[in-house]
Design a protein around this nucleic acid. Sequence first.
DNA 1: TCCCCCTAATTTTTT
DNA 2: ATTAGGGGGA
Length: 765
Amino acid sequence: MQNLLHNLNAEQLAAVTLPAQSALILAGAGSGKTRVLTTRIAWLIQTGQVSPSGILAVTFTNKAAKEMLTRLSAMMPINTRGMWIGTFHGLCNRLLRAHHRDAALPQTFQILDSQDQLSAIKRLLKQMNVDDEKYPPRNLMYFINGAKDQGLRAKDVEAHDDYNRKFVELYDLYDQQCQREGVVDFAELLLRTYELLSRNQPLREHYQRRFRHVLVDEFQDTNDLQYKWLKLMSGQGQVDSGAVFAVGDDDQSIYAFRGANVGNMTAFEREFRVQNLIKLEQNYRSHGHILDAANILIANNSKRLGKNLRTDAGHGEQVRIFESSSDLQEAQWIIEQVKNLIAEGWSRSEIALLYRSNAQSRVLEHALFSSAIPYRVYGGQRFFERAEIKHAIAYLQLMDNLHNDSAFLRVVNFPTRGIGAKALEQLQDAARQYNCSLYAAVPYVAGKAGSSLNGFIKLIEGARFETQNLPLQEMVQVVLDASGLITHYQNEKEGADRIENLEQLVSAATLFVSEEGYGLDAPAFLGPQAQAVAGTSITTADGIEIIDADASLTTIMSPLSAFLSHASLEAGDNQAQAGQDALQLMTVHSAKGLEFDAVFITGLEEGLFPHENSAKEEGGVEEERRLMYVAITRARKRLYMSFSQTRMLHGQTRYNMRSRFFDELPDESIKWLSPKIQQQQHSWFAQPKSAWDAAPESGNNKIAQNFSRPDSGWRIGQNVAHAKFGEGVIVNIEGGGGSTRAHINFGKFGMKLLDLSVAKLEKLG
DNA sequence: TCCCCCTAATTTTTT
DNA sequence: ATTAGGGGGA
């Protein structure tokens, strides 16, 4: 015990040893948040206040959950079995599997990832003959997810006009389609669990009695439904409710765009009667100047719970700021600095290049590639999202759940087996007529189409028969061969990588089976061997005794179902190149939670960071500022910030002003590596959105001339006047020779593309 | 059925 | 600049 609390500071110690009541921990960046969370769990158990089964710890990412488990097992000798530690979605999956009957789901229900969900929606729109121009599938998806994230079913959504009524109607139809097919999307996992426990008193009381301590990581990222879910799980408001230990940082709330509601923090304080609000303000990561910059910057936000980080590490170095004339030059400069750092002995993997949007990585990558500096870009495609893997998974899904129409359609003609659009149309008609799945509709299709479809059915059923007693990894191998996927890619000229990936799927299955404790010879199809552990049985309303969703998946899911869940819920690694000591490139969003010795924050320009779209959104700029705060606080020892006067974006050169965030940094903590050019500050910001491409101010004209085309007689940056549109500025020139056209920003008339040989333009200034 | 060309869109991301 | 997706032709 002494050991456990030994290295904590006063704030951390206070948080860890709080009484068993709900508490809010405001944990600043680098303040030892995960440590407090895990030590709290260990302390509760070691002091005998709770048994491991009374713990429910929730995170957002699998990575965070894994990290917590690892640290806990290092801290305590006891096994972590019995503790519920996982993501919201993972825990819900477990609950729904265990109580699938009460949740009205098939035991083998399958989870749609975002791709699957979108294609399910497209399919629905097609079937309903809905114009997907008028009702874009993507928008419908946002609509549905947005509603579910607030805990609303179609019947609960208010629509005030016909357009929205159509969305609501489609939402309802979508849910019906999912139910028919035995599939659930991500938001549904949470909503279904919430509804299950709301309506089923014995189940609800069982879990509420069980979970004495509910701990939540990254609480500022919770959405409305997750908040309600936590209330329900802890039994908030009831006599003997569990205690919720919420850890979060309102200053690092950067996911409002996907439904996160920072307001949950104040709601939590109020509704859970929080007596204990503890701020962790001691930072163990960054040097003083870096921390000062972060503190002063974030102080510009109005809606804050209030917090100020401090460090014992001393001032350290100032933040270095560099202005370049072009994005290419910016990249060159960064590479120079990186080379210097490496020469000084800094480790490549301890240097990060951060940017606001993925598109910005290209220039940096190009420059790094030319300089032969190893780098790694985060955020690419992930293993289970690859097309060939999705195909293989679809075969497995279909074998486990014949009514999954998404899976059916994905592979019915892949590899091609002569089942074209016509045959599928017949099949879909039959399915509609008999209100059944595509699979079940096959016998109703006559003729040539019917026989080719029958061939597919034979294939699936043959594979099912052949693999019924095989362990998962062998089943996967059989499916790869029987489906013809391997043969298909062997015949494709660039199929070698894909085959390699498919082989990796077999390894992934092997690894999964052994890690989850199924045993390498457990048949993949075999149902769970439910075993009642003492205290885990519940008697439901209709008098049936069932086993609760114990921590081990093996008791509630077959290896195949578990593996398919795993494929959806943990899409796998998304790091392009792993292994060697490489520079780290990522968006600021993906950098959250990470730290590096040296950090470059690049592309700090108005329109990019803060992003132009943020100006339109309520609270958008404050969220961008929090994003900037996250970026700054990633750095331990050295921080660089850079911006460029011109930048190639979407094939057009943009003239941006330096980010307003520079003006919010304390002078003492920053050092301009290039002369600070006086710019006209942000007066344009109130102008219409087209003004984002504003012309360079006088101080930048030198640059504009570099990019001009003297032969045309016109140049970028030239001020012009037009009879109808008034005064404007040439932002870009394209073409040349016979037809030269110019993009001209006419302020309130917006951007126009005019032919310079035709348009009557007068040169000004 | 496949392939090529045209168009449109392009903040951030996990599950 | 780049890419994804749709439509039309071979």
